[in-house]
């Protein structure tokens, strides 16, 4: 894609906010912790308005890859990387985009729920706007809080106690609060690192519904250990694998249906059919 096309994309988005969203592309991404290489030349396109699932055994570098996508990897002392990551063909590492802007546009939900304990439920939802100084004047805060909590499937449970501390919710509620918090800054892309691993089936289903709704406006990348979940929510799927003493790589990627029904690589087949190691 040339730069003129990029501009077209941006204008499209401006004209039609529910139209084509932002896509994310990673090319030849490698990552190190100190001298320990954990990712080896990963190339993956995460097309707009699709859910991309990252699957693979523990320790193969899925979280690391996800954190590279919104520049969280560099927060770990000694962590380095190579390759390019581009949002709508703008390199997030080299183009001079502010790192805070990158992170605001590419939101993240962590595996462990981490609401801010010193803030109330409502403040937690609004915290992103305050933290990034990106106040949208169009929205009434109370209205924004309600909308985000509704989209995260939490509104009915907390509408009576928006003033209670965020830490006073149950684990599943906290995770949905974190999703609401991530949505409030209106990210173009949302990265989710095993968002349901601490949740009960009901909360999980609600979050999966949320993901399906969000897909219309937001590009989603989700890490999951749950094969059924990957099948249910994603359209595209990448299988990561780190063979013994080797950094993690993408063994196979493709449309979710294909990965789960007719994978090319026998290792993928073993993994998705539960016959792995």
């Amino acid at each position: 894609m040339t730069s003129s096309e990029t501009i077209d994309l941006v204008e499209d988005r401006a004209l039609d906010p529910v139209g084509l969203g932002s896509g994310l592309t990673a090319r030849q991404v490698s990552a190190w912790f100190g001298e320990h290489k954990v990712l080896d030349r990963v190339t993956l396109a995460m097309p707009p308005n699709q859910v991309t699932a990252l699957i693979g055994p523990s320790g193969c570098g899925k979280s690391t890859f996800l954190r590279i996508l919104n520049r969280m990897h560099e927060l770990v002392p000694g962590a380095t990387l190579s390759g390019t990551v581009a949002i709508n063909d703008i390199d997030i590492y080299r183009s001079g985009l502010l790192v805070t802007d990158v992170r605001r546009r590419i939101g993240m939900v962590f595996q462990k729920p981490n609401p801010f304990p010193a803030m109330s439920v409502a403040e937690n939802v609004l915290s992103g706007l305050k933290l990034s100084r990106h106040r949208s004047r169009r929205h009434d805060p109370a209205d924004l809080v309600e909308r985000c909590l509704r989209r995260a499937g939490l509104w009915n449970e907390v509408k009576q106690r928006l003033g209670t501390p965020g830490g006073a919710l149950s684990g599943g509620q906290q995770q949905r609060l974190c999703i609401a918090r991530a949505l409030a800054v209106q990210p173009e892309i949302l990265l989710m690192d095993e968002p349901c691993s601490a949740l009960d089936p009901t909360s999980t289903r609600r979050i999966e519904e949320t993901i399906a709704e969000l897909r219309e406006q937001v590009t989603i990348v989700i890490v999951t250990h749950n094969m059924q979940q990957a099948q249910r929510v994603s359209q595209y799927c990448a299988f990561f694998l780190a063979e013994e003493n080797a950094p993690g790589r993408i063994v196979e990627q493709g449309p979710t249906d294909k990965i789960f029904s007719a994978p090319d690589d026998p290792r993928t087949f073993d993994y998705v059919s539960g016959q792995f190691g």
Binding site: R103, F110, N114, F116, K130, L131, S132, R181
Partner: peptide, 27 residues
Amino acid sequence: VPGGLREASLALGGTEWSTVRRVVLPT
């Protein structure tokens, strides 16, 4: 103060200073 809170704040687009002021110190 748990590191996860700092990461959460930075992941929302917070600057280092706003993270300290609005998350770390209040916590």
